[in-house]
Design a protein around this nucleic acid. Structure first.
Lengths: 159, 159
DNA sequence: TTCATTGCAAATTATTTGCATTTGA
DNA sequence: TCAAATGCAAATAATTTGCAATGAA
């Protein structure tokens, strides 16, 4: 449901920006790896497969542009580098994406779709006057697989 | 409601770690600036007032230790550096702190206390098997003051 | 005494920037 | 043609690490 290549080209032209191979490829890599939380370095390696002469600085400049155009989201997994993923909602109207379940045991990140926060946002606006435009919600814990593994290996272990 | 200096000393001894002035001062500075979201550099400057010979590396090592002991939380305001604040709940049982309302216009960060996420967490566990231990929730938007300012200055401005 | 802790400086890592060159409109 | 975009290398900024000196137990 993310943005099409044509729509992206159009948006670039509207802004008076140029349509370059590099920009198209960065968006394509992000679109081909949705829910993968790629770092700039990840994107760099993936784009290099098709376009070996690209520079890392171009990746940074392009994701910055895509962020401003609201075509991608930046998330942090608290590992010291920013991660990027393509937005669900195309041009960024329905800006209420998904949350992330981050397993503290194996590091896996599972997306979770939910809109239960809308009510909380209305509550916040009424209570504090703060107008909420967007939110970012992360849950930390242990995924099902790790729980199973823990159960089987720690059955007789004292804590 | 955060941890007392005595309790902290006791915890250090339990772990076989040494009670040092530097460690006490870092905790004290965090306790004296609750809800202030200090960077390592901020803490460094504040501790230097009492203890000018402290090194920045010690700040980093100490906040790392405090994080492991669950006495402080690390949050990111997406400005390229980690921020630290003292935990509400002392030894970290009731790990459900507060959320942050981040104003995109003036950068102000307002804490907001709420427990409406518990229901959502139960829902997630039932749905996905992911066992939630903690969460981090940020809202981005515009604070009341900025909204007022905007109304008064942009009354006749075309967008 | 003795090993954990510290301060300092150097190293590392992610990201940004300056600039000459290239390229899309 | 020509400003925008790129690639490269150097600069920056946050954080980490190695190591000799210090200090708490």
């Amino acid at each position: 449901m993310s943005i099409s290549k044509e729509k992206f080209k159009e948006l670039l032209r509207e802004k008076g920006l140029k349509v370059t191979n590099q920009r198209l490829l960065v968006l394509e890599v992000l679109a081909d790896h949705r829910d993968k939380h790629l770092t700039a370095e990840d994107i760099y390696e993936l784009v290099k497969e098709d376009y070996p002469e690209i520079g890392l600085a171009t990746i940074y400049r392009t994701v910055q542009l895509l962020l401003e155009m609201q075509l991608v989201d930046r998330i942090s997994l608290d590992d010291g580098c920013a991660r990027y993923e393509i937005g669900e909602s195309g041009a960024g109207e329905g800006k209420h994406h998904h949350h992330h379940l981050i397993c503290r045991t194996c590091g896996k990140v599972v997306p979770f779709r939910d809109d239960l926060l809308e009510e909380l946002e209305r509550h916040i606006e009424k209570e504090t006057g703060f107008h909420v435009l967007d939110h970012e919600l992360k849950f930390f814990g242990m995924c099902m697989e790790c729980r199973k593994r823990q159960n089987s290996t720690e059955k007789h272990v004292e804590v």
